[in-house]
């Protein structure tokens, strides 16, 4: 049969088989099995009020900025930090308290994301001060992290770094993209070594070189009183 197919067809077949073997499967996090009105089981809310909510016929993860209080971490922070970082949780807690301006929920299913893609769908519903939806990554046991976020009050996508409780601007995507509230959009990042790229609804936003490779937990991020729904959190781990 091999002779009948010819060498070029075989080459294509082998190449595609090889590609399939190398392409890592995307992991998609669904909230379908979660309980509406409760905190998510797949994510650990560290700051802010994160609850499963019903939107249309789907369960989504909702950051409810109406109950945001300055400097107040999420309930049960100590237990959640212990679950994520075991004996190293105290340093994490101290740092997270300093970050309490920025709600975060950490995905429980991966400890060390280094290379690959992360994407999430989001829908902004409101927020008098901020309307922010972001992807959290490079979260360290000491609470340091990076985030690429869309801000609906500024219409931009920005990379921020948080070190020892201090937020610093890193890079702003050059394109302003006004988005309407109540509409779904997709934020995506790709990390390979120190290369960071981002997209908003498949439009390229960032093409940036980080100061060092990424290594840490991942999740979703928001800011102050934002009211945002998240859905279809996906990631692909590349070697």
């Amino acid at each position: 049969m091999m002779q009948q197919l010819g060498p070029s067809v075989i080459a294509v077949f082998l190449a595609s088989f090889s590609l399939a073997a190398q392409t890592p499967a995307a992991k998609q996090i669904s909230f379908a099995a979660e309980i509406v009105g409760r905190e998510p089981k797949t994510f650990a809310p560290m700051v802010g009020s994160w609850v499963i909510s019903r939107e249309g016929n789907r369960n989504v993860l909702f950051i409810d900025g109406r109950v945001w209080k300055r400097g107040q971490p999420a309930g049960g922070l100590a237990d959640k930090a212990r679950e994520l970082y075991g004996a190293r949780n105290e340093e994490f807690i101290e740092s997270i308290k300093a970050f309490a301006y920025y709600p975060i929920a950490v995905y429980k299913g991966i400890d060390d994301f280094q290379n690959g893609e992360i994407s999430v769908r989001f829908q902004m519903l409101g927020g008098a001060l901020d309307r922010c939806a972001g992807i959290l990554f490079n979260l360290k046991p000491n609470g340091d992290y990076l985030t690429v976020r869309y801000n609906g009050t500024e219409d931009n996508v920005v990379l921020w770094t948080f070190n020892k409780g201090v937020r610093k601007f890193v890079n702003r995507a050059p394109t302003l993209v006004p988005l309407e509230l109540g509409t779904w959009h997709t934020l995506k990042i790709s990390i390979h070594g120190t290369s960071l790229k981002s997209w908003l609804d498949d439009k390229p936003m960032h093409d940036f070189t980080l100061s060092e490779p990424v290594s840490g937990k991942i999740g979703v991020w928001s800011k102050t009183d934002s009211m945002v729904e998240f859905d279809d959190f996906q990631f692909t781990v590349a070697k």
């Binding site: 109406r66 519903l125 109540g182």
Partner: peptide
């Protein structure tokens, strides 16, 4: 007005 279906959520927050 934008997204009137979630207006009460925003108004309560404000």
């Amino acid at each position: 007005m934008e997204d009137s279906s979630h207006a009460d959520l925003r108004r309560e927050g404000a």
